[in-house]
Design a protein around this nucleic acid. Structure first.
Lengths: 239, 239
DNA sequence: GGCCCCGCACTGGCATACAAGAAGCAGTAA
DNA sequence: TTACTGCTTCTTGTATGCCAGTGCGGGGCC
């Protein structure tokens, strides 16, 4: 079944390398949550699905392992990693750190193109909040944070940030945290405050407020998370 | 030629996996500077040297690529990455960020075992500075920073830190920066100050001072770096 | 009925063979 | 002399086959 997947994969071997295609697609699936944490990934099955041999699949999984998205247990199997509750806390600590730094750096840079994009983003976000369009607002939140990182103009920072977000499967989570009543409104306000401080070139305060914002978003998220059993996986999936 | 390398590799397949051995060994060589930046790494040659086939070598290089230590140009070859001057700056920005955060976290944790180790480390460092033992002091500096990170008790932070340090080939550089006259003394003083603030549980100040310390060490390093041509590689190696 | 042991099926690890692109070099023509 | 063209020889990318360790289930033994 699902042979269209094969076709789609073959039709866009973007850079010509099959493993790049496999990596991108598998990463997308894991982050988006198409595959639930802990699920086994058979090299053979994937090779079959993508219409390639095991080799590129193996190398793709290997890379996803170093990115922290899957765990390869030798001679046993490859599984989507299940972040423990502790790891989630750690990841958020890093998120707070990096985004805070990004706000500071952006403030120091002065008026750069990203600032304009952020302003536009916030205008749209205001409208989305106004009409209670939670889905659109979630997108804009993600974009806001991405713009902030991009505006920091530090490729290493961006790389580490991407890796963190992938491990957090963040896109899956934003919606959840916004389900808290009033969270969207507060989040939007916090974004505005951060931008103000950046425009005022007050790097210290921008960093501080941004950190607080991340902490708030974490609290909102953990509050709306189903208290999964002792092990601390995300949840028992929806299906 | 060099069959002893083969033997050594075979004699310690620590976790049983060959690629793990290759990864560790190649990482060591790159960081230590045995291979100069920009040098080509032939899969075949390495496979031959380690006495394995290309497969595990390929997977090892793939991982080193995601760690940022080598660059794989498709159909062309694999090369030790040459960090640009800009990248070095970015890496130091990240180092400042992460070590600052570690100091803050450690201050918040109160008296943990790592604190004792740091105190012991500083006592030894004082002695090393006293007798002008630059080599020993360099080791202790590295240990100080490692202890700080360990004391933060955040595995993600530690993982990202390790990755940064590998890319910076830091161990190669510490000695260089300490060649600045008076740098060792000042560095030691800064370490003491950071510890004081940590003991006083003043996370904010500890972070701030730690950041300043990293900036100072960066300045000392860049000042003593040979101004390598326009491209910004580390230098033309020593040998 | 319950427990243990052996074997089968599946996993990833590794070796090897083939394919295909990239780069340098030589030869030739202008 | 110089520039271009074609080839030769590298490189990595992919496919495939075999091997060894793991886990599970069936069958035998107690």
């Amino acid at each position: 079944m699902e042979e269209h997947s094969v076709n789609r994969a073959k039709s866009e071997p973007k850079n010509g390398s099959m493993q790049a295609t496999v990596i991108a697609e598998m990463r997308r699936r894991i982050i988006k949550g198409d595959i639930e944490p802990g699920a086994p990934l058979s090299e053979l099955a994937l090779a079959d699905e993508f219409g390639v041999s095991r080799t590129p699949v193996r190398e793709a999984l290997k890379q996803l392992q170093t990115e922290g998205l899957v765990e390869i247990r030798p001679r046993v199997g490859t599984f989507v990693t299940i972040p423990s509750r502790r790891e989630i806390t750690e990841l958020f600590e890093m998120k707070e750190l990096i985004e805070g730094a990004a706000a500071r750096l952006l403030a120091q840079r002065g008026r750069v193109p990203e600032i304009d994009l952020i302003e536009r983003n916030l205008r749209e976000a205001d409208e989305a909040v106004e009409r209670d369009d939670r889905e659109r607002y979630a997108e804009l939140v993600q974009e806001f944070h991405d713009l902030l990182i991009a505006g920091a103009d530090n490729s290493k920072l961006e790389a580490h940030y991407r890796m963190l977000m992938n491990q957090l499967a963040y896109s899956r989570l934003v919606n959840t945290s916004l389900s808290q009543p009033g969270r969207a409104t507060q989040s939007d306000r916090e974004h505005h405050l951060v931008l103000e401080l950046i425009l005022a070139k007050d790097g210290d305060s921008a960093e501080q407020v941004m950190r607080e914002h991340v902490r708030a978003s974490r609290r909102a998220l953990l509050a709306s998370l189903p208290i999964s059993g002792g092990q601390g996986k995300f949840g028992t999936a929806s299906s």
